[in-house]
Design a protein around this nucleic acid. Sequence first.
RNA 1: GCUCGUGUAGUGUAGUUCGGUCCAUCAUGACGGACUCUCGAUCCGUCGACCCGGGUUCAAAUCCCGGCACGAGCACCA
Length: 506
Amino acid sequence: MASTSGVEAVREALAATNPEALERQKQQKRTGLKPLPNATQGEVILRFAPNPNGPLTIGHARGVATNSEYARMYEGKVVLRFDDTDTRVKPPMPEAYGWIEAEYEWLAGRPADIIIRASERMPIYLDHATKMLEGGFGYVCRCSAAEFKALRDASQACSCRTRSVETNLSDWSAMNDGKLAEGEAVVRVKTDLDLPNPALRDWPALRIQHTPHPMVGDTYKVWPLLDFQSAIEDHLQGVTHIVRGKDLMDSTRKQTLLYEHFGWNYPEPLYWGRVKVYEFGGFSTSSMRAAIGEGEYLGWDDPRLPTLAALRRRGFDSQALRDFWIDLGLTQKDISISMQTIESFNSSIIDSKCERRAFVRDPVSLTLVASGHEIPETLAVARHPNGDVAGTREWKMNGDILVDEADASGEIRLKDFADITIADGAGIIQSIDRSDKRAIVHWIPSSMARPARLSTPIGEELQVSEGMLEDIDLKETSIVQLERVGFARIESIPEDGPVEMLFLHG
RNA sequence: GCUCGUGUAGUGUAGUUCGGUCCAUCAUGACGGACUCUCGAUCCGUCGACCCGGGUUCAAAUCCCGGCACGAGCACCA
């Protein structure tokens, strides 16, 4: 309306019909996460439930960031729960439990409030299964998966469904005693068989697994499936809000049916959509585990991998990762994001903390020719151009300098020093002050340089550039900005041999 | 196929509950400029979107109907 009749006409119409609309604020971007439904300050309990079949990936970061941020907003708690009830398809990795606890703390900025392992709480789940059987809202099904599926799709009950509680209980004992082989029986939750969504009809709650569990061995022959274990545990922990991927929407529906049987109230569910990161293709924890095993990658923190361990090693700041995911918010849209955006968040946090250093790749040596100008014995260059990091780097001049091969021709300006012209391996000084608009390049006196290697992950490749690095106050694990190259983390400074650096981003 | 969900600039978001200062927010990006002795940072400017078609209404991103597109689930994985 405003476009056709003008703003004034809108104003008049509003004054006549809807005066309060005039009071509205110009729209603004909401900041932070949107409020949680039905949340009471101080009483919110959330949970983050990864499978410990490997360390956390960038995708898990959304779960950590979102849950911990909500806990912070509502002065609530986060339960870190290891959903390790599968021993064959995605078997747990013993080391992963500790890794994940540490990674959670790194990313959230504080440890999880409560940490539990499903495998240590098996008696509780088995007990609830017994109650379910006794209550008659669950049954032991002896059909094969294929037989059951055919029946289920036709909304037909299988013959096991109507058996007596006593029969179910005796089969249940047989299952737990290891007298039935894997696949010979499963415990199902009774639901309405006319449910429109076939996936929900009499869904499986526990199955037989004879493969030993890496943490608790062969103590248990029957293990709960995610939908059952998670449902019971959420209730026991008093979880008020479940934030999870929307691929688990059917899980919510299945679990709600189970809660009705038990007479419990289901927590408030919230969902996020699928996230794809352009730079990383189809990585899954299992596929990475396999590729590392085959030697394709050097380890979980290989810089080419989308693991938190790799991002952390490269120098991503946990605050930046958190800011990024919180800015993204919680939406059910399936999205594709770019590392560029995450890098931008990271730059804004680390730029002011990182000292500058010169790294000359493919170095060319030039002899300085004073030609009437005075070459100082030392040169002081700022550690940070804006003075965010105080102090200077003192360069001893020895008459010999190193410049990047790509810069070593014609007339250039040596940053913070002099205009030169290059001829026959010599750098002839033309002016100490800047005299024209020629390109400014980074350089170092050869006396200040030591060999270094910079590794840059590019897709599946790890490109290595060799060169000479300014040898001033180098510290292992620190992040510096290499002038005209980008941010890099110093990995190691050996006694002899080149300094190893890992490229972070531009 | 069945079930469920989602459609706002290149990307990601705000606004949709309860129609109106919405010619639509912010960030990122691209492009241009200023400044800075880095290709970094900072500052300024420009570009760019309500999936489509109907309907209701003085007024629709918002409500209704119908399409279309995309995604997920339909595992004795999580």
